[in-house]
């Protein structure tokens, strides 16, 4: 009885070990199952999903116009304080003074890509971009101004 158990355990063990070796042997001979992606080489073909949150961007149209009214909802909704909006008073053609953004400062180094500023924005002036290669040699390069120089608010956006 003891011998039966003894040899039974040996054979079942060898069987389980051979099952594992069969699997690794299968993958050793089937190179088409390899899942590695060669990242810097496949950069051209690499397509991030549309929703991927890589950084905050402010789209400008061809007339260099953005949609940010400077309402500061994003600044308030940001949990990390990575957005700072500096506004100015701008005299409109009809003579009225209106609040417009001067600089839209984005601290990429503090951003956690939670996307809450984009959610809070009432005019969809900011979006999450797909760019993810943010590495820089110095931290100062991670402080960005999102509104382009000379840009202005698109007409009709309030």
């Amino acid at each position: 009885m003891f011998l039966k158990e003894y040899f039974g355990s040996i054979f079942s063990s060898i069987k389980s070990l051979l099952t594992g070796m069969k699997l690794t042997g299968y993958y050793f001979t089937h190179h088409n199952k390899i899942i590695t992606e060669e990242y810097p080489d496949n950069r051209a073909a690499l397509k991030m999903p549309e929703r991927f949150r890589g950084e905050v961007i402010m789209p400008h149209d061809e007339k260099n116009e953005h949609q940010c009214t400077g309402c500061q909802s994003c600044e308030l909704s940001c949990p990390n304080g990575s957005i700072k909006i500096i506004t100015k008073q701008e005299i409109q053609p009809d003579g009225k003074k209106k609040k417009r953004i001067d600089t839209w400062v984005y601290h990429l180094d503090m951003c956690t890509m939670c996307g809450m500023c984009v959610e809070a924005c009432p005019t969809t002036a900011i979006l999450m971009g797909n760019e993810f290669e943010h590495s820089q040699y110095e931290k100062k390069y991670l402080k960005k101004v999102l509104n382009k120089p000379g840009s202005r608010l698109k007409d009709g956006v309030e």
């Binding site: 999903p49 929703r51 991927f52 996307g115 959610e119 999450m128």
Partner: peptide, 17 residues
């Protein structure tokens, strides 16, 4: 990948509000 496509991030999704 599904998380990335649906929620925008792979680990820290922040999808439930």
């Amino acid at each position: 990948s599904i998380m990335e496509e649906t929620c925008g991030a792979r680990l820290t999704q922040n999808f439930m509000v």
